[in-house]
Nucleic acid binder design. Structure first.
Lengths: 146, 146
DNA sequence: CTCTTCTTTTGATCTGATCAAAAAAGGGTT
DNA sequence: AACCCTTTTTTGATCAGATCAAAAGAAGAG
């Protein structure tokens, strides 16, 4: 089994990223692997399930550390809490359901970052292009409008 | 003079949008016309300058009403406060300076919304594609790194 | 001018996130 | 295995941006 961030392999991921291996971080990494595109509030219960004493702050800490270390990425669709994912290094984009907030990955529209070039960059040195597709997911489209 | 949202013309814009014409809304509209891509905190001082008794809440109210009425658009780059602009109806995008937060408009990459189509939409009904180009503006590039 | 409706003000409240100090744990060294 | 220094976790305060709600005030139709 490869890339099982919840198993013993999680330790290696952390160590390789230059982070100390702690039960807290292993729990957050495992939770994030199980539920990509989750916010702190969504991850916290999963972490607590495995580590009853965990604090919400430790989840914030771990996710911040993961992001700084380059093993996680934070996205923040307008009007939503920050969400994290372990898929990094490929400049992919997201599809967000404007009703329920569900998020799906979308491969990069063109190629590598910045995958798009603005028509006129006004002197800016463009580093990346972040694309968010807004729409309605299948589940919400089928469900009656509340 | 056309599109001078701060002058007597502002009243027409509001009326046409189905909103009551109030001094507060005229002041917010004028401030936003003068400084596009501004947050409530940036707009509030300008509004107060013209209307000493104004409250911050009235700026939130006006901007929310403008957005609902379709005469303003709200953008929210990750990690920044919400910003508003009067340029609506054309699906344009933004260039954001990751150092100072400066925002510039960028014409739509392709044409009309959704100006891009995800490689696979996973069953979503895609309504729009929001593109944010992150980079460093000329001023920040020239200035010493703080 | 009056009356109804919408808007503004005031002040409380909320969420998501950050900061800081003390306590606890990691992990290299001996 | 014991030690020690450093990093991490906890706890609890604090912050920013935004929203909610009730009372007071203004818009504008008739």
């Amino acid at each position: 089994m490869h890339d099982d961030h919840s198993g013993p392999d999680a330790s290696a991921v952390l160590r390789d990223a230059g982070l100390r291996v702690t039960e807290s971080r292993r729990a957050v990494l495992g939770a994030l692997a199980a539920r990509p595109h989750s916010s702190v509030d969504e991850l916290f219960p999963l972490v607590v399930e495995r580590m009853p004493g965990a604090s919400r702050q430790s989840v914030y800490n771990a996710l911040g550390d993961f992001t700084d270390a380059g093993i996680a990425r934070r996205i923040e669709p307008a009007g939503r809490a920050g969400m994290y994912e372990l898929r990094v290094g490929d400049n992919h984009h997201h599809l967000v359901c404007s009703r329920c907030g569900a998020v799906e990955d979308v491969d990069c529209v063109v190629g590598e970052a910045p995958c798009l070039t603005p028509s006129h960059s006004r002197g800016f040195t463009v580093a990346s292009a972040e694309v968010t597709f807004w729409g309605v997911c299948p589940a919400c489209a089928g469900a009656p409008v509340t």
